[in-house]
Computed example of a mutant assay.
Amino acid sequence: MLRITILTALAALSVASLSARPRARDAGIPFDGTPGPLNAITDVQGVEVGHVTLIAGDGPLEVGRGPVRTGVTAILPRGKAADAAPVFAGTYSLNGNGEMTGTAWIEESGFLEGPILLTNTHSVGVVRDAIIAWQVRRSGSGRRDVPWSLPVVAETWDGWLSDINGFHVKPEHVFTALDDARNGPVPEGSVGGGTGMVSYEFKGGIGTASRRLAADLGGFTLGVLVQANHGVRRQLVVAGVPVGREIGGGTRRFAGSNPTDLAGLSVGETGSILIIVATDAPLLPHQLKRLARRAALGLARTGAVSGNGSGDLFLAFSTAPVGTSAAIGTPVDVKALTNEGMSPLFESTVEAVEEAIINALVAGETMTGRDGHTAEGVPIPRLQEILKQYNRLVAPAR
């Protein structure tokens, strides 16, 4: 039987209460910068997140039946408001062995005009079509008409653990993730689109973090959400410490996004990561592209090299007002930071991306999927022991 878990951002619960494992800061891992109150992308006012997690079956792979370890994650920049305006956005591909639909129009227009959905590689099509159906369904309840839509759907490959060719993500799962998206704490690890993902040859998945700038730097908030399915174990760096090499092990077989021989991957990284950056700072599309590029530096802090087979795709958006006018040819007023004001946001992006990735790893509990394939959760006591040896473990956050 398919077990469907609907995980939204729950304002009444702490993130720690959503998982048996602590978040990275709670485990004593040090990070730079000041997080928002939730240390999540939902610290950016208006942003909502929803997950639908699909888990079913064990044992040998039977295409179409399972085992199933997959799902879908929805990010709504301005929530579900019927009259939600577009947001300025920019994208960046560090390595393009992956898919993020709708980016050609973002690059052309500078606008993101709907939600962002994250899922597995072979479910991109059904998720894209379901977003349009969701938008059309809502057009009859006060939402503006939807004559056309170019949804943003991005993917990473979960075929090591899941029956990826069984097409288990259905339109109703997309509808649920969108309808039930909320602000508040964001579940992490093996949830939503991250359910079957593997990162640095440990269990990966969804991670999030945020940063709040000081008042004299604008007081802006920046949040990040990642779907981590990248890296090989020897590369993993935590707080500047070569944790992957210290823990050892790893086969470099299942970090892949598009492997042709699961048993024969022995050279380099073929995994993928999706990084979504949100901010309330007033930025123009070209400035958001600059922000998206900085996500690569946060990724590099965790040891990744973005190998040839890696799909490392990033998107940044701003929830600041974009200016609208019903009259063609009428100018609109738009505010934007100066170039000199961008550097604190660059630094915040690097810091939050690093922490979001480590949060995804720390939250990832050991999972066994198809054909007995197992992705081990990062052993937190061993991780703490290594950090202590390098004088990098700090008192756990309270």
Rank of each mutant, 00 (worst) to 15 (best):
G268R: 03
A40R: 10
A316K: 06
L217A: 09
R23M: 15
A255P: 02
D180K: 14
P30H: 07
E354M: 01
A130R: 02
E99S: 07
A74I: 06
G207L: 05
G159R: 06
T324D: 06
M367N: 05
T302Y: 08
P282F: 07
E385S: 13
N120Q: 10
R233L: 12
T324L: 15
S14L: 03
G369Y: 12
P285S: 14
R138K: 14
R78G: 01
P396A: 06
S325M: 06
G114N: 07
A320H: 00
N120I: 00
A316H: 06
T251P: 00
V226E: 07
I132P: 00
A56S: 15
I206D: 13
P86A: 06
V174C: 08
R25M: 12
G28Q: 05
A255W: 12
L222T: 02
L393I: 00
R65G: 00
P151F: 11
R392F: 04
Q384M: 10
Q135H: 15
V277C: 02
D145S: 13
T330N: 03
L222A: 03
G33W: 10
H373V: 12
I132V: 14
Q287L: 07
V191T: 10
G194H: 08
L61S: 03
G240T: 03
S109M: 12
A360S: 15
A278F: 12
D179T: 11
P37H: 03
R182S: 12
V322Q: 04
D333V: 14
G369P: 10
G28T: 02
F254I: 05
G59F: 13
K170F: 06
T251E: 12
V332S: 13
V153C: 05
G219V: 01
L345K: 04
P321H: 04
G372V: 01
S149N: 13
G50Q: 02
P187E: 07
A89S: 09
N308P: 01
V232S: 12
D371P: 00
T119A: 02
V126K: 05
G307Y: 13
G248H: 03
P60W: 12
D179L: 09
V63T: 15
V153A: 05
P381K: 12
W160Y: 13
